[in-house]
Design a protein around this nucleic acid. Structure first.
Lengths: 248, 248
DNA sequence: AGCAAGCCTTGATTCAGATCAATCCTCCCC
DNA sequence: GGGGAGGATTGATCTGAATCAAGGCTTGCT
């Protein structure tokens, strides 16, 4: 299972769906050309592990499509998700030889990879890449801090509502859907993965989702297909300021 | 109280205690010279607020001495600390006009500040600054993710032990103390601030500290002065791998 | 069709940490 | 020396989420 990843033929950066959001977003045509030289695609199946915490990691890359999770595990098996990687998100840390976290493909996943050394060399020559990476890292830091508030201070119901609002918002951003009308999306995570994200048990996740459904905050079709009739109501349940968020 | 900060005369970067760890760590003499032109020092008293979340923030800077906290507050008053700023840590985000969090001086605090615009201009000209800032931001992101595990999955006792081990380790790094002999330091935080950091109540913090003391994991002299007779024992209580950490 | 494996839901019970409440200690100010 | 404020401790009780436990619903395999 581990070595099932296949190596695609390279695709054109110009057609890349994440072209304007990934590390390469600020690159000029000639810089893109250079990246093109060292890039390669890798596919992972749902459930497959991309990297194991502590293992040597000789590449970095961007999620092109699909979803992956970043998790940390204690010796006794308790696990906490520390990041949710969506298309355009960057994986790996320049300047470090080993992976800090487990990265697991939650859905089928396509990544645009660069061998670490050439990428680092190029980063040193190309301020546009370093600039963009700094910007992305600062955004991730903000997201992590936002999540610390969720983990430390919110109730189980608020945690679920927070997760739903984040997924809904990101999904809307990705599909460039207009603001009006109900928000509709599929949950990309199992109940267990949600629990790992939220510092809850899967039973509590299930119960709170049922409760939100009973109260009409969300509408469920099957176990994964979610409709949010009133997004501000959801934000309210999440304990967030119900303004502000609309323009992110 | 708010405007009590005083403006010092500039000090020499060459003598700066955080010279080798701050954003300027990689700068050459001439680059340092330029920074020197635009820097100014600001002092804050213990308890004073450095920035309010949402307010315009027209400077960035480094903590030179003292300790500050980064906190997020919900409308109903629940607060979560999302960062602990020690000497050499950087405050503010280039490219953003408003502060994202409350920054409060926990002890008397000295900061080395730069007006935002000149600093950003200089950052664009000086890769050494951007590189160092990226590195520091990646480190902070790792710390934030470490903290997510603490908040999401650790028990109250483990949380306290984790906090003590982090403070102890940072303090040891700052004072370059050898590995052997008991670790000794003063807690820079009130019980309430610890609670805000750990997602607990102050009563629980107090109880768990008492318990660790009773069990001989820590020795307390007064309410703030802590001795750790056996650091590995503490790491064990924190639920961390008791190896690994020694070289950070 | 029949069965097993994943995933999810729901119920009963327990327990860690929150909440409510009283007291203590230390430092400072009058 | 008395009083008060801020921080810390400790006790009693409550409660939200964990834990333990039993099924249910899909999907895929034989």
């Amino acid at each position: 299972m581990l070595n099932e990843d296949t190596y695609d033929i390279a695709r054109d950066c110009g057609e890349c769906p994440i072209r304007h959001r990934a590390v390469c977003a600020r690159c000029e045509a000639d810089e893109l050309e250079q990246l093109d030289q060292i890039k390669y695609y890798r596919n992972f199946e749902a459930g497959q592990t991309v990297t194991w915490a502590g293992d040597k990691m000789d590449f970095v890359g961007s999620v092109v499509s699909g979803i992956a999770t970043l998790t940390q595990t204690m010796e006794d098996g308790r696990t906490q998700m520390v990041g949710l990687l969506l298309p355009s998100d960057f994986v790996g840390r320049p300047g470090r030889r080993t992976a800090a976290y487990d990265v697991v493909a939650t859905t089928d996943l396509v990544m645009c990879c660069f061998r670490k050394q050439p990428f680092e060399d190029m980063m040193n020559r190309t301020p546009h890449i370093a600039q963009r990476l700094l910007e992305m890292t600062l955004d991730e830091l903000d997201a992590a801090r936002e999540w610390m508030l969720v983990l430390g201070r919110k109730t189980a119901r608020e945690k679920i509502a927070s997760l739903l609002s984040i997924i809904g918002r990101r999904d809307a951003a990705l599909h460039m859907v207009g603001r009006e009308g109900p928000m509709v999306f599929d949950l990309p995570l199992t109940r267990e993965a949600m629990a790992d994200y939220l510092g809850l048990t899967l039973e509590t996740v299930s119960r709170q989702i049922s409760a939100l459904k009973k109260d009409g905050v969300i509408v469920l079709e099957g176990k994964r297909h979610v409709t949010i009739p009133d997004f501000n109501r959801l934000l309210d349940e999440a304990g967030d300021d119900s303004d502000g968020g609309l323009l992110a």
